[in-house]
Design a protein around this nucleic acid. Structure first.
Lengths: 192, 192, 192, 192
DNA sequence: CGATAAACGAGACGGTACGTCTGGTCTTGTG
DNA sequence: CACAAGACCAGACGTACCGTCTCGTTTATCG
């Protein structure tokens, strides 16, 4: 057995990101991106892409995940509420840039492609939420956060408004917005 | 001038809904729906569709808006908190059915088509939010809801988790979920 | 109803002949000729070609037939035997050039594509043979040719060696060859 | 040095014949037959095939020649004319079956592949013709056949109509046809 | 008898063309 | 003069083979 070419794999993923203009503010959308263009840019045969991924969305998710999941870490050294504010801020800032546009498009693809949805869950959503859930649990342990509700549900209170604004283009993703989201979430989950 | 044929307009919008299987749980997605199929089913020329709408998404939005925006009214006769719970429940219930799938797809289209986004805002999102905002304002007047934050922002606290679950397929849209969302939103916006 | 574009039809057939290098001694073979190349050269969509022809071979036959069936007439003014020699000579001379190569390739296509075979029969073979059969009948009427055998069979005696040499590249198609073929055919069909 | 694997060679040639359905009336055509299919069926690597043959046509010719050239012998014990009739009959009968279809396809391949043409000449055509030429020479020696014309040319008078019918599907290859061909050829080559 | 070099199977790879599909435009004739 | 009918160009789709090219792995002489 010989196995797949790591070189081609890298070239494909890298070309995908380049064409999507991740990092820059230029670039196409996932929809307009063609498998043919990826193949050409990567110096690779279309068949090679279809052999390993099968779907344009799969390539994009793989490419995005493999290099661009920025860590928006939760800080242990800060007090609970401050750590949460910090976290929300870092998430909002990431999504304010080109990464946000791409995530929005991945969610769009997920509406039509259940495999893409699955991948999106596994590679992005779960990872992201885990950070918040951990934090919420810490708040529970410290007795600051109500513990009669599922931690995941509480974590969503943080992300939901961010994703809403991202997907519905319902306002800018500013630092002020981040602060407000954090404040309201805290109000909703705090023990009274 | 002869003016556009109302008959054709109706046939096109109706065919669009039929093919999308709105109402039933069958039907294609917006992506798989083709303009050619609409034209054929409506007994209409493709040119006629393009003359008046210009985009597949525009047709779908028009069709969906013209017949399927269910009223999820806000009740004046109930106490504030109860009215909110009621409203959230009605929204969740609508999105749990086939309408939800279609709304999700419209959001997906909006990621690629800014005209569709605009239409979505004007025909669905604003209308929906207005209901919640009115309600929140009532709460403010009654002194139950904090009035130091934009009412729109507070209203979003209600919708955000619903849309998140709808778009990310992050759990079922059940009555229990609606109750929980209402409760957490209330906790977040209540005057303390 | 609007009907097909004569302009496209002409462009397609003409491009086909150009690419095959009919007339010149250059040019591809039918096998190497691609539908994509025809489309590009003709400034036409591939779909248009497939709409009307369905097969590469069909396009080639149509193109070749519509412009390149040279008349290799049978002369009435010459004595029977001389007319036959003349006819064989004109056929051999045509097949010695680029037309011969193309006819050979059409026969090749016919081994795999029964529709092409049918077309070849109808557009080339029958037309060609009719000339010879008419002549043979004249010979029968004049009492020079044996009439106890099917005229078509006798006509084939003229063409068979020519096609054999064309298809098996079993020697050059020279004037001398033509004379010899005519002579042997006459020997075979003459009344004794 | 180790040398090529006779086992593989046999497997490849045998698989080729099997897939082409020689013997049976089933089977693909040479065109539809793929090297990949041969390799898979023979349990052999594609590279092995290309190492030794270089061309699909070469494999087919080799396979066909190595096992399926039926002897259509010329009988010395019969009078000249009878021997000729016998020979034509045996050729026609062979070509009436599945072998004929395959020979026709080999001729087709030869229009595009000059190496295949060369092979076809060497392995089939020459062998076949030699039989007839020998016979014609015998006729010349006996003074029955005109000797002012090249013996090969006269031999072709026998084969040409058979190949014409085979390649142009211009009628069935029946015993009656064989008799007629023999008769006309004799008429053409007899001393008068 | 153990080294060595060929031939091998497996199958990934870059290419190229296939025939299909849809989008969006344009043309012609009818009501 | 808006319409249906539908042909048209453009170009991406996903598939199929091509012929080349690694890879380890036999396998059969030869040192």
């Amino acid at each position: 057995m010989v196995g797949r070419s790591e070189e081609s794999r890298q070239a494909i993923l890298h070309s995908t990101l380049t064409l999507l203009g991740v990092g820059e503010s230029e670039g196409t959308t996932i929809q307009r991106l063609t498998v043919e263009a990826i193949a050409k840019h990567a110096g690779v045969s279309k068949a090679t892409i279809y052999r390993w991924w099968g779907t344009k969305a799969a390539v994009v998710i793989d490419a995005f995940a493999s290099e661009y999941v920025r860590h928006t870490p939760v800080r242990d050294d800060l007090p609970f509420e401050e750590a949460l504010r910090e976290h929300v801020l870092s998430v909002v800032r990431q999504y304010a840039g080109p990464d946000g546009r791409l995530v929005a498009q991945l969610v769009a693809e997920s509406q039509y492609d259940s495999a893409a949805l699955q991948e999106f869950h596994d590679r992005f959503w779960t990872a992201r939420r885990t950070a918040a859930i951990t934090l919420v649990r810490r708040g529970m342990d410290e007795g600051v956060v109500r513990s009669d509700v599922d931690a995941g549900m509480l974590a969503n209170l943080v992300y939901a408004p961010v994703y809403l604004r991202l997907l519905l283009h319902d306002g800018e993703l500013t630092d002020d917005f981040a602060a407000l989201v954090a404040e309201l979430a805290l109000a909703g989950i705090r023990v009274r």
